[in-house]
């Protein structure tokens, strides 16, 4: 059974959301094939923060030479999103746009946003990570949502319509963004987000927000 070790520590809703992510991870997405998505996931796992004296080369210098399923440039973008997302400024984004395109970038970032919290939770609890799923061959869907707007971030998104911007940030990659939000709901916001006093978790709301704010400070995420 998937996530067997984790299931004795966290509630069923979280495990269910993890299983949904894992079930779709190896299947072709809108713009990346199943094998490419697994290669992205593997490279997420290979990416770790580097010491100050070993900074990664600028992505502008990385070649389009293919290594396995991904180019060296694509692997560089995976690493950057995984360990240094706060360094992605408009210049870096425009370079990514020229060489990868916004659709593939949105899906790549959405994959990182799904795999990282699952692995991170295992690591935080000292549990062995779940094996990545098998890649499944099949055509990409080339899905691109309609009604996109461009006033929320670098990427086009669905309109926020009362939702926080972070909820729609990667909605250009519709299906992966939806799965990402399943994780957010099961792990954080649930049904009672607007209430300032929580009693349904082990931590109080102020304790939750302390951990959340400290994590964001460590990642230098202004949002």
């Amino acid at each position: 059974m998937e996530f067997h070790a984790l299931s004795s520590h966290v509630d069923k809703e979280i495990v269910s959301s993890f299983k949904i992510v894992w079930d779709h991870l190896g299947r072709s997405g809108a713009w990346w094939t199943g094998p490419q998505r697994i290669a992205i996931a593997q490279h997420i796992r290979n990416s770790a923060p580097r010491p100050m004296w070993d900074k990664p080369p600028s992505i502008e210098t990385l070649p389009d030479e293919l290594v396995g399923e991904l180019t060296i440039f694509e692997r560089g973008v995976v690493e950057r999103v995984t360990v240094e997302p706060s360094s992605i400024d408009i210049g870096a984004y425009q370079h990514i746009l020229e060489r990868m395109g916004e659709d593939k970038y949105a899906e790549l970032a959405a994959i990182v946003s799904q795999v990282v919290p699952i692995d991170h939770l295992h690591d935080a609890l000292g549990i062995e990570r779940e094996e990545l799923p098998e890649a499944v061959e099949g055509p990409i869907t080339m899905e691109r949502p309609k009604g996109l707007v461009t006033n929320i971030g670098f990427l086009p998104t669905l309109p926020a319509e009362g939702l926080p911007h972070v909820a729609v940030a990667l909605s250009l990659s519709l299906a992966d963004n939806a799965r990402r939000m399943l994780l957010v709901r099961s792990m954080y916001s649930g049904q009672t987000f607007d209430q300032m006093i929580w009693t349904h978790r082990s931590l109080s709301r102020p304790q939750v927000e302390l951990v959340a704010a400290r994590t964001s400070a460590l990642n230098e995420c202004f949002y």
Binding site: V81, T82, P85, S86, I88, A109, A110, V112, S113, Q114, V116, P117, H120, H165, V166, A169, L170, R180, L183, V184, Y188, T215, S216, N219, C221, Y223
Partner: peptide, 8 residues
């Protein structure tokens, strides 16, 4: 994950 989403 949310930090990655927002910043990327």
């Amino acid at each position: 994950s949310l930090n990655i989403t927002a910043d990327s």
